[in-house]
Design a protein around this nucleic acid. Sequence first.
DNA 1: GCCGTTTTCGGCCCGACTGTTTTCAGTCG
Length: 572
Amino acid sequence: MSNEAIAQQFLELADLTEFVGDSPFKARAYRQAAQLLESLQTPIESLAERGREALAALPGVGDAIADKILAYLQTGAIPKREQLLQTVPAGVLEVMAVPGIGAKTARLLYEQLGVHDLASLRDALMSGAVDRLPHFSPRKRERLLRLVELKHKSQRRTPLGLALPRGRELLQAIQSLDGVQQAMLCGSARRMQEDVGDLDYLVASDTPQAATQAFVNLPAVAEVYAQGATRAQVFLKSGLQVDLKVAPSERWGAGMLYLTGSRAHSIRLRQRALERGLKLNEYGVWRGAECLAADTEEAVYAALGLPWIPPPLREDTGELEAAEQGRLPRLVERQDIRGDLQSHSHWSDGLDTLETMAQAADALGYEYLAITDHAHQFADREAFEQRRRAIEQLNQRRGGRPYLLNAIEVNILPDGSLHAPDWMLRAAQFVLAGVHEAHGQPAPQMTARLIRALEHPAVDALAHPTGRRYGKRPPNDADWARIFECARALGKAIEINGYPTRMDPPTPLARVLVESGAWVCLGTDAHAARDLGAMELAVGLAQRGWATPERILNTRPLDALMHWLAQRRENP
DNA sequence: GCCGTTTTCGGCCCGACTGTTTTCAGTCG
């Protein structure tokens, strides 16, 4: 039972609470609890073992929600949610997920027309039955019908690795629109969240009306959901939602802050403003009618008595307290990274030659690149020896710019042993071990398996620890705190993998990893030269885990990295 | 449902846009 699963239950409980017309503040409390559970760094079970008081001590969790969590852990369900589902069809949850349909409208549709899921909603819209409802018109019916179809298309959130290129492409288009002076991608993409639900743009313009009009006229736009004087919301043909907000340049910082979120972070900031007799909105920080700060984010934070907080930390998971106490981390940045510690060449399943990989790594300014071809894909000792010579020759020819490491990625078998001969494990300069089969073992087995692999003297680091693949495979279950502690004690590294469909370990766990004090290595898992650019995703994930450069292996210069590896080999 | 050196009761972030009910509720981010 994952924290995500129970968070989802609370979100549904919130929707159901609104649907039946109970206090909207209850619904908000449930949503806050869901957000808290998602961001929690420890499994809720282990917290619950310390009793009801430990749960009720969490911010936003009181006796009632603590009881609901306990009941969920015992029975697999929240009784209140089950009780509401006795009277409310579960399908109304998907009806409420259609843009523009909230609790009141969903309830009206249900009571008057028996709309109980997406299919019956579509029927009611197509037949025109909705026209006799109050507040409905043929125009609204057509609009809703289009939104239902779009909603159908874009059920899933978009992985950051796909959203960022699309977002940047669209940013260019927005920047070149008439009347747009400046534009910026904000929202969850700026916070480097692993998946994004929409793209948010802030635009500076002296002619906001013209700018929003030009925006909704972009060829990629399929449906204009809202368009006003200072903002517009559209859906692209792909189903992706895009929000645009226009701000005068003197209010740019307040606009950025507002549009970047997260929602929870913004709410905390506004509460903080109120506590100081101030008001925070998207136009600035105000004392009465006097604007204290608005032009930069730094100024807005400063007016609230805080240093600037990096976007990846803005999740209300302790960053405000850290900022207040002057202990915000100096986050690792892309420029700190001197090499990539996972990549594949055509010697295993990569597409490109060593030469091409080296050139691409050089273009990124790297000092080194670990070529971690899959160990089991070498036919024999001679094949491995051939690659070693090829790497050596290339290093000589290129003068070590970048220096290629003769490395391997070795499969961790179900029992924790390694799928590679001893001579290869000894010969490789860097050994990355990862799970590629028998996913989904029970947690105790997976924990033992990974610890056994880490304890193997030849292993330097654990690759993509949870094995999750977007839309394909959930993270493996294991006692991660114990595994990370084991890596720390052994002086070994755990990878933060930036391959777009991996992004592993996921955010809350990335922070557990960083806090464990174990060494961390960043890798793109590139299977082609063009994939090496995913390092920004690995860095973003590390930032969301509050990582500083100190314990990240590949912030080290080559000689320090080689020293680290040599020491490990001398004292296995 | 949660929370508190202004409170254990009475509050709970703030504003834009839509549609249509001529003054505002619903929805969203």
